[in-house]
Computed example of a mutant assay.
Amino acid sequence: MRSRKTSIEINGIDIYFEEYYHSPHQETYVLIHGFLSSSFSFRKLLPFLSAENNVISIDIPPFGKSGKISRFQYSYENISITILFLLVSLGYKQVYIIGHSMGGQIALNMMLQRPSFIHKGILLASSGYMAKTKRSLRLLSHFPFFNHYIRYYLNQTGVEGNLKQVVYDTTCIDQEMYDGYLEPFLDTNIFRALTRMVRDREGDLPVEKLNRIQTPCLLIWGDHDRIVPLHIGQRLVKDLPNADLIVLKNTGHLLPEEKPEDVYRKIKEFVQ
């Protein structure tokens, strides 16, 4: 297996990715993380997937080690187009896509834009039905130093507080986990980029667009998800024409961290 961790400029911004490549004959999985996260969140799922498959784990801009420039458009549509450009530039013809939380919404946008490119989709506690950012907040984001407000808001609970919200069993939180989720926010440019994201985020796909997605999808949810509650998954599985829903017991929102082996087993069954 060949592996590399690098960045490539795509669509005017640096995209960081980790690639684990066996051969063109192996299945390829693309991992897309959620909001305020990075490819770090897949570190426990990755060994299962990369043992026999090609895997690409991508940092969505402005998160992780990807670019954090304020001139990039951080809409779901543009992020999805950028990731598709990256995959095509790497020579991939068709992939399986795994999206966690906000990454699930990115995955759905990719299925809508290039349905023939996505063989199957796996949505791990995918976000859904969130409206566009309120107009008042979008207007406020144009004021100088709004990025300081975002930083202050996120610091209210801190990394440890946020982690306690996204897992069911808090004993899994250790120093490695804490440091991994803190690292992307040590670069203060992320707060300026998040200011732009407040303006650019167009809201989740409406029902009429979800109904158009024919890609087979597997939805995996934790029964104790406090971030994207199970009823969102139950609604999504009805609005996606070709989808199934699996619920994992005693699991929170951070599925790849809490139940990596169970998630891998369900993915493998779905793909086969």
Rank of each mutant, 00 (worst) to 15 (best):
I97H: 04
I98S: 06
H100C: 01
H100K: 02
H100F: 13
S101V: 07
S101D: 10
S101A: 14
S101C: 11
M102H: 02
M102W: 06
M102V: 07
G103P: 03
G103Q: 01
G103R: 03
G103V: 03
G104C: 02
G104L: 00
G104P: 09
Q105H: 06
Q105A: 15
Q105V: 05
Q105P: 00
Q105Y: 02
Q105K: 04
I106G: 01
I106F: 02
A107I: 04
A107H: 05
A107V: 07
L108I: 00
L108E: 01
L108Q: 12
N109M: 01
N109W: 10
N109P: 00
N109K: 10
N109F: 10
M110T: 03
M110R: 02
M110H: 11
M111T: 08
M111K: 04
M111H: 11
M111G: 11
L112G: 01
L112V: 06
L112P: 14
L112S: 06
Q113S: 12
R114E: 10
R114D: 10
R114A: 15
P115R: 04
P115W: 06
P115A: 12
S116V: 10
H119K: 14
H119S: 12
K120E: 00
K120I: 07
K120Y: 08
G121H: 08
G121Y: 04
G121E: 00
G121L: 02
I122L: 04
I122C: 00
I122Y: 12
L123R: 06
L123G: 12
L123K: 13
L124Q: 10
A125Y: 13
A125S: 13
A125M: 03
A125T: 06
A125N: 04
A125W: 10
A125K: 05
A125L: 00
S126P: 13
S126E: 00
S126R: 05
S126L: 08
S126Y: 13
S126H: 14
S127I: 14
S127Q: 13
S127P: 08
G128F: 07
G128V: 07
G128R: 01
G128D: 00
G128A: 13
G128Q: 02
G128I: 02
G128P: 10
Y129K: 12
Y129H: 12
M130Y: 15
A131V: 05
K132G: 06
T133L: 11
T133S: 15
T133V: 06
T133P: 04
K134Q: 05
K134P: 09
K134H: 15
K134Y: 12
K134L: 10
R135I: 11
R135S: 08
S136A: 13
S136K: 13
L137W: 15
L137M: 08
L137Y: 07
L137R: 11
L137A: 14
R138C: 13
R138F: 09
L139G: 03
L139T: 06
L140E: 07
